[in-house]
Design a protein around this nucleic acid. Structure first.
Lengths: 138, 138
DNA sequence: CCTTGACCTTCCTGTCACTAGAACCTCTAT
DNA sequence: ATAGAGGTTCTAGTGACAGGAAGGTCAAGG
């Protein structure tokens, strides 16, 4: 398989596949013409990567997950640890965003949004202590 | 004021303040020794920036907000538009993360996390269609 | 007067996970 | 022979800074 076909069948852009080879996540063979020659196993890895990335795992997480996947002697606890940590990170992000959202929604709600210059949003950003301040102070 | 004092009083790292000057968000004066000489107005802008960034506005949003802040003839609708768009972006991010979270939590829940190699997380990533798949397929 | 240490300067590189584009090569079909 | 679709490598850019090197400046103390 050439890169085009693998791209289509994996759903990943060819650029991304080349990048994954660059950083050592896959190691396709080479044809005599210099083209990358992908095996089914490469495609399988790429699909694995696509799914893991879609779940938000970092590239390094993916590397670790592929390692564990290849290691038939793994302990599922190791996989679960990676996933749990990622889950916590996502929870933190959600909490942070929700907090931002609350502040922002309040400000947007308070702003008339008309042709006059008075604006509680700008007042808040400028530091006027008329209302509660942004969620994450630092 | 030198950069150190402004850093402390604004809560922004000196590196960040230099960066903001680089990209034209602030324009401090210069002392005869070459040091940046910050006015109170610069500090005010930096605090504004710090708060806007803490609310998740992009640098370009911040540039626009500072523009509007300086323009006494602005219409609050313009400010509200920037903030509303940002709010929508945040909502999308939250929705995306929640979707990831649901899938991931399910997988983590299903994984025994013991010393045996069987792992539904890896099975899912490998493409086994035993359960519902990741939230954002592409 | 000299040194020490804190503070300041510029410049370069690295982050993360790609993406865009240039310049060039290879294959297939006409 | 040529056109077009595919492949190759390489460099540079993204956002918003952070880390670090090499060097200039300043106030205090010996």
């Amino acid at each position: 398989m050439n890169i085009g076909e693998v791209a289509e069948r994996s759903g990943l852009p060819a650029k991304t596949i080349r990048y994954y080879e660059d950083i050592g996540l896959i190691t396709p063979l080479r044809s005599s013409n210099g083209y990358r020659a992908f095996r089914e196993s490469d495609l399988h890895r790429l699909r694995f990567l696509g799914r893991a990335r879609a779940l938000g795992f970092t590239i390094e997480d993916c590397r670790r997950l592929l390692e564990l996947y290849a290691d038939t002697g793994r302990e599922s606890a190791q996989v679960k640890a990676v996933a749990s940590e990622h889950l916590s990170a996502i929870d933190e992000k959600i909490a942070h965003l929700k907090s931002l959202r609350a502040t922002l929604a309040h400000l947007v709600h308070c702003c008339a949004g008309d042709d006059r210059p008075d604006c509680p949003i700008l007042q808040d950003l400028a530091g006027a202590d008329t209302a509660k301040r942004a969620a994450k102070p630092a």
